[in-house]
Design a protein around this nucleic acid. Structure first.
Length: 490
RNA sequence: CGGGGUGUAGCGCAGUCCGGUUAGCGUACCUGGUUUGGGACCAGGUGGUCGCAAGUUCGAAUCUUGCCACCCCGACCA
């Protein structure tokens, strides 16, 4: 084994780091808290972007781009917003460097201090709403449905590759509407887009829900989320969609003239997913041999490994597989014929397993003579010998199978690890096991806070379309109408 | 910011306690050859300001002092 991967039972965090680094997704950088996304990891992000962007466009959104820098005064216009982000903002104070007098390098030029300091965006509500003020006058300008793909910076104290870094890539949608009802519908619609994306592409089952007041986005009236369960039983917030009410419209004085000729503040939403989804992908599906990528997002879906001496044997095999490669590509399936003769087949097998390539074909002279090919699927690690004739159609089906199987596996894992707690002692016992807890809660922030202090578990969400049932709060014993999801979270 | 730990070749480490030839091992990398159905083998080779700075000493990876960086745990969080 050239690349040792820590096993999950041994050290789950280290296993995760090993996959990210050894799988070639990302690298540590020399900048504290920041990572380098390597080509293979970035290719996954590009696939996510392509699928999401299409879904955004289909729901009527357009892309735009707003500045990286936000004047400090903008951030403080919405009280709750600044409160939530102030502690993690990077600030630009100067605009020039100069040579140090002692020749030791460059220093910040003290004469180049900015009149007003700039914040590197932790999110873009303020800079965007400052523009929206100029763009919206009438109900005819609404709704305004804009998304941007961007980087943001949040100066986190502790970072983890993909899951939490100081700088990360994401998309943020910012919409403006004439009525509260319409904005709420938008918020829900985009949550649904995220949930569909997570389930169809990431093969990740998610719980759609609402955040409690404690967990709400800074400046929102309501935060909706999708929550996923990782293999260690911890929760990961995979996407959020916020109903912002009129908070930002009021902070930036964005009013429109309605049909009755009356001025009204507009209603807002914002929603986002980030490169964190790559972390979710890894922690949800991968195993001790490496990444397991869902076919729909895998940068490479099929690899063909010839087992042959360079020269005549290799040529024969290539000639045999070439038409199939063409056929696969015509079906939109990415495929690579790995004829690198400096690496042996066994090495390649291990390497492509590490990288999570969903399907691997191997053909040696024995298969060549028999008219067969060995097919190995990454998700189950099953190998079978198939007739080469008609292999493209077989692979197309297999990829769909794999996508579905990965989802089913994650779903049954999740469903098997959601447990109901009906008393405080039961809760305390269950929280020490991996998984989510479904329990009654009295609805008060104080109780939620207390539970967090005692167990490190937070309320991940109040599921949408939640079953209404009478019960009593696990901690306070006060009456409750529905269960909420508790878990330890990333 | 508090507690703990680590800095020696791209990566992983030994050597440091008890100072002493030319700083070593595994892996990776390069060259040549033999190989190829699960991480090949043989031979040869490249690569080091021992985190930085000062000090002690005939002599420092090793001892002293100061500084820096990173990791882990906690407070904060998509």
């Amino acid at each position: 084994m050239a690349k040792e991967i820590t096993t999950r039972v041994n050290d789950y965090s280290q296993w995760y780091n090993d996959l990210v680094i050894k799988g070639g997704l990302a690298d540590y950088s020399s900048v504290r808290g920041c990572m380098v996304i390597k080509p293979y990891g970035y290719a996954i992000w590009e696939n996510m972007q392509a699928a999401l962007d299409k879904m955004f466009k289909e729901t009527g959104h357009v892309n735009a781009y707003f500045p990286l820098f936000i004047p400090k005064s903008f951030l403080s216009k919405e009280a709750a917003h600044v409160e939530g982000f102030a502690k993690e903002c990077a600030v630009v104070t100067h605009y020039r460097l100069k040579n140090a007098p002692d020749g030791s390098g460059v220093i910040v030029d003290p004469d180049a201090k900015l009149e007003e300091e700039l914040i590197v965006r932790p999110t873009s509500e303020t800079i965007i709403w400052n523009s929206y003020k100029n763009w919206i006058q009438s109900y005819r300008d609404l709704p305004l449905l804009i998304n941007q793909w961007a980087n943001v910076v949040r100066w986190e104290m502790r970072t983890r590759l993909f899951l939490r870094t100081a700088e990360f890539l994401w998309q943020e949608g910012h919409t403006a509407h004439a009525t509260a009802q319409e904005a709420i519908e938008e918020t829900e619609k985009m949550l649904d887009v995220y949930a569909t994306f997570a389930e169809d592409y990431l093969a990740l089952p998610v719980i759609r829900g609402k955040k409690t007041a404690n967990e709400r986005f800074a400046g929102a009236l309501d935060t909706y989320c999708i929550e996923a369960m990782m293999q260690d039983g911890q929760a990961l917030q995979a996407g959020t969609s916020h109903f912002l009410g009129q908070n930002f419209a009021k902070a930036f004085d964005v009013q429109f003239l309605n049909k009755e000729g009356k001025q009204e503040f507009v209603w807002a939403t914002s929603w986002g997913v980030s490169t964190r989804l790559i972390g979710a992908l890894i922690m949800a599906h991968s195993d001790d041999d490496g990444l397991v990528l869902p076919p729909k997002l895998a940068p490479l879906q099929v690899v063909i490994v010839p087992i042959a001496k360079p020269g005549e044997e290799l040529n024969k095999i290539y000639e045999r597989v070439a038409p199939a490669i063409k056929e696969l590509k015509a079906k939109g399936i990415s495929v690579k014929f790995d004829d690198d003769d400096t690496k042996r087949p066994g090495f390649k097998f291990a390497e492509y397993e590490l990288k999570g390539v969903p399907v691997r074909l191997a053909m040696g002279m024995r298969d060549y003579d028999n008219g067969t090919v060995e097919v190995a699927r990454r998700d189950t690690k099953e190998k079978s010998v198939q007739q080469f004739e008609g292999i493209a159609a077989y692979i197309e089906n297999l990829l769909n199978d794999i996508q579905q199987n990965i989802y089913n596996k994650a779903k049954s894992f999740r469903d098997n690890n959601i447990r109901e707690a009906n008393s405080w002692s039961e809760f305390q016992q269950l929280i020490e096991q991996p998984g989510f807890i479904s329990a009654h809660w009295d609805g008060s922030p104080e109780t939620e806070e207390k539970i967090k202090e005692l167990t490190k578990a937070t309320i991940r969400c109040i599921p949408l379309n939640n079953k209404q049932e009478d019960g009593v709060c696990v901690l306070s014993g006060k009456p409750s109408k529905e269960r909420v999801i508790f878990a330890r979270a990333y």
